[in-house]
Amino acid sequence: MKQADLKRRNFLKLAASGVMAAPMAGLVSTVSAEDDALPHLKEDSADAQALNYRHDATQVDHADHEEGQQCGNCLLYTDPDAQEWGPCAVFPNHLVSEGGWCTAYVPRG
């Protein structure tokens, strides 16, 4: 399979998961970024590695990452007012860095 076909297929899979996750984002209970009830997602966790999650989007070296993309402006970041760390529909039992990024990124807008 050609590289372009693989990129297109990956894009379509991610877009489909984002479309499916978007309606669910409203169902996730919002958690204050200051709430220590949930742990911060660790970059070395299996879930984080599966989606190439990084705490600092400026340090991401991934073909799908575009400048300016970060958790804080992602549709799946379920509390856009959260500062520093906030809830994410993709990682429901953890808080993610507002300035982080993963391959499930869906632009808010």
Rank of each mutant, 00 (worst) to 15 (best):
Q70V: 05
A89L: 13
E98N: 04
P39E: 09
L75T: 14
S97F: 01
A15M: 15
S29W: 07
A46S: 11
D44I: 03
H94N: 14
R8L: 12
V19H: 04
R108M: 04
G99L: 08
T78Y: 10
H62N: 15
V60K: 03
R108Y: 09
D36Y: 04
A15G: 11
D36H: 09
N52W: 10
T30R: 15
Q59V: 13
L51F: 12
L75F: 05
A82L: 07
M20F: 13
T30V: 09
L14P: 02
Q83I: 14
A21D: 14
K42H: 08
G86S: 04
P23F: 03
L95R: 13
N73D: 04
A50H: 06
N52A: 15
D79W: 07
A50M: 08
R8N: 11
V28W: 08
T103S: 15
L95G: 03
K2C: 02
F11R: 15
A63F: 14
A63R: 14
S97T: 07
A48G: 05
E67G: 04
L41Q: 08
E66L: 12
Y77E: 00
E98G: 07
S97L: 07
L12D: 05
E84P: 02
E66V: 05
S17T: 13
D64W: 14
H40I: 08
E43N: 01
F11K: 14
H65S: 02
P107L: 10
L38T: 04
V106C: 11
L95I: 02
A89V: 13
Q83N: 07
L38P: 08
L41K: 03
E84F: 12
Q3K: 11
P80A: 02
V31D: 02
C102N: 06
G72T: 01
F91Y: 11
H55L: 09
Q49Y: 03
Q49A: 09
L14Q: 14
V96T: 11
A16V: 12
Q70W: 07
L6D: 08
G18S: 06
A57N: 00
A37P: 01
L38E: 09
L76E: 04
S32M: 02
V60A: 10
L75S: 05
E67Y: 05
H94I: 00
E84N: 11
F11M: 12
V60P: 00
M1H: 13
L75H: 10
F11D: 12
E67P: 04
L6C: 04
D5I: 09
T78M: 06
C88G: 00
E84A: 15
G109F: 04
F91W: 03
D47V: 08
A57Q: 01
V28H: 06
A15L: 14
T58Q: 09
R54S: 03
W85Q: 09
C88I: 00
F91Q: 00
L51R: 11
Q70D: 11
H62M: 10
N93T: 02
C74Y: 08
S29R: 15
M20A: 13
P23S: 08
A4Y: 03
L51M: 07
M1L: 15
E84S: 06
T78G: 12
A104K: 09
F11T: 12
M1Q: 13
N10W: 09
A82S: 09
